[in-house]
Amino acid sequence: MPDQNNPPKFDGVEKIEVKNTIKQRAVGIHGDEHNEGFIAPELIDEAEKEVLKLCTNSPAMVGESLEKLNALWNKMKDLPASPERSQLSDEIFLQAHEIKDISAMCGYELISYFSESLRDYINKAELSVKAQVVIIQAHLDALAVVHSKGYKSDAGAVAEELKLNVKKAIDKYS
């Protein structure tokens, strides 16, 4: 009997045709599976409205996520390099990633910009604890300002100034 965990070595190329049972079921018993199908445009429009609905609530969601982010950072910032610090850093990474997802989806470009940058810096192994503290704090300060003032676009004088402040911290400590 063949061993499923150690299948025999295979050197060639096989093409495996898989029966399209999904199409059969998607056209239903009265449909013809040889005809092309589609999802009705009105349903797609309705789905787009769901995205808009989520976006109406997104400032509150981002606010909640920022609170969690700050709470995690308050626990993490004074810890020396340790497994606990790494664990918190992973949690901040995911929280920042979530903020980035929601804000990007809803057109909050500046929040998306800083949360993506925070996500990418939080796990940089080459940073010392001191460098990390300065860089992460700069990101969190920028996020707090952007969220409290409701800035949306990542262009313009205010956006440039906030980006410059974060860049200064990065350039000085990384």
């Binding site: 998607a26 056209v27 239903g28 449909g31 013809d32 040889h34 005809n35 092309e36 199908g37 589609f38 999802i39 009705a40």
Partner: peptide, 8 residues
């Protein structure tokens, strides 16, 4: 009938 049809 080769008209595209909405999926169910």
């Amino acid at each position: 009938n080769k008209q595209p049809q909405p999926y169910d």
